[in-house]
Amino acid sequence: MAYSEKVIEHFENPGNVGTLDKNDPNVGTGLVGAPACGDVMRLQLKISDEGVIQDAKFKTFGCGSAIASSSLVTEWVKGKSMEDAMKITNKEIAQELSLPPVKIHCSVLAEDAIKAAIEDFRAKRAARRAPEAAATEAAKEA
């Protein structure tokens, strides 16, 4: 099966490969995998306190389509708000890369990775705010 030109472009020249510090409170990490193919994909987003995605990195072990899908979404999400990034669908990814039907699950994986990374960031932020809120409550009571 031949890969589309865009897949080859991303595969040969993937942008944004790497890691962000997963302990940084502003970094959300999404780790996803599909047993259908044995691919594993890690997507990390650095999100400002205002909820804007400032940076994105990925690491994918999988086929060319999985690598291209993750490379593409890291380009797309930069500068977007979390809400807008959540709206990216696998259909858009598959369309942009002209993925054949058997490779649609690669684009699904990339969509899931964005959502997982944002959810991770939100959970971290909520955990961070919880003690703060508790402290405010305690101050009020005192």
Partner: peptide, 10 residues
């Protein structure tokens, strides 16, 4: 797949 498994594989 369980998260700890994916982490291990990664």
């Amino acid at each position: 797949m369980p998260m700890d498994f994916l982490e291990e594989i990664m």
